[in-house]
Simulated assay, not measured.
Amino acid sequence: MDNRAIYTSLKTGKRIYLRPIRPQDSLRIRDTIANLSEQSRYYRFFSGMKKVPEPVLQRLVAVDGVNHLAWGALDLGEHDLPAIGVIRVVRDPESGVAELAIATLDAFHNTGLARILMAVIICDCLQAGIDTMQANVLAENKKARALFKTFGGVCTHSDGAYLTYTLDVAKMDALIHGVDIPEAVSDVFHAFDRFNAYKPRLAG
């Protein structure tokens, strides 16, 4: 089991706990999707479905740490640690390009959570050897488009309603290190430094 853990705080001061998604998180992910607003579900899944089909849910938690990376942000202020945001990439073994998807509960928009999750997935992709991400987004989803542009995303395909942004992971890493780094993002970097330092001891 991947036991990496990151503790930090949002802009609001709320404490959160970040860790990789596990197979036993299926109920937690189901509840998170149900708690998204209809618009947020539509933006994330291109569908307003409130209940995710079981096969889809199982794919969402089938994380292997190589071609499928996923992290959840859990609310430490609640006894059952609900997931308030999830980010994932799924790499195509042939092309090497990983599809990126991110969703946060509506109550946590504009709290810095999306940027924290992006920092986590950038660090994890660098470790996993993922060089390029692509994100499919609805043209009307202005917040997601702005987020991807902030990280150097370039629109490489458009059919009107849907856009595809391509992101270079090394460029994303340089951009997020090249700004006034929020304390929460700094917590992510420090945590991955610890994870990397611990690897040789695990192997030895």
Rank of each mutant, 00 (worst) to 15 (best):
Y42E: 15
G112Q: 05
D168S: 15
V154W: 01
E94P: 00
L27E: 12
D80C: 01
F195W: 04
I102N: 02
P55K: 11
G48L: 14
P53K: 11
P20F: 01
A101R: 03
R91Q: 12
A191I: 09
A5I: 10
R59M: 14
R201G: 00
M133Y: 03
N3W: 02
G112P: 08
I84G: 04
I122T: 12
H190I: 11
L18T: 03
H109N: 12
V90T: 11
C155F: 00
V86S: 04
A101F: 05
Q58P: 02
K171V: 13
T150E: 13
Y198E: 15
Q24G: 00
I121C: 05
I84W: 05
R41K: 13
I116F: 07
T104A: 14
E38G: 13
L100T: 04
M1I: 07
C125K: 02
R145Q: 10
I181Q: 12
F192G: 09
T32F: 14
D92S: 05
T164K: 07
V179G: 12
G178K: 10
A5R: 09
R28I: 12
A114S: 15
M133S: 01
L27K: 04
A170Q: 14
R91I: 02
R91A: 11
F189A: 08
D80L: 01
F148L: 15
A197S: 10
E99G: 08
P23L: 03
T156Q: 01
R115I: 11
L100I: 04
A135F: 01
H157Y: 02
A170H: 13
A203R: 00
P182F: 11
N110T: 07
R44F: 15
D180P: 06
N110D: 14
R15Y: 02
Q39C: 12
M133C: 10
L76Q: 08
R145M: 08
D168N: 15
L57P: 12
R115L: 10
G77R: 01
G178F: 12
S9T: 08
R194M: 11
N110L: 02
L57T: 10
V66C: 10
R59C: 10
A197E: 04
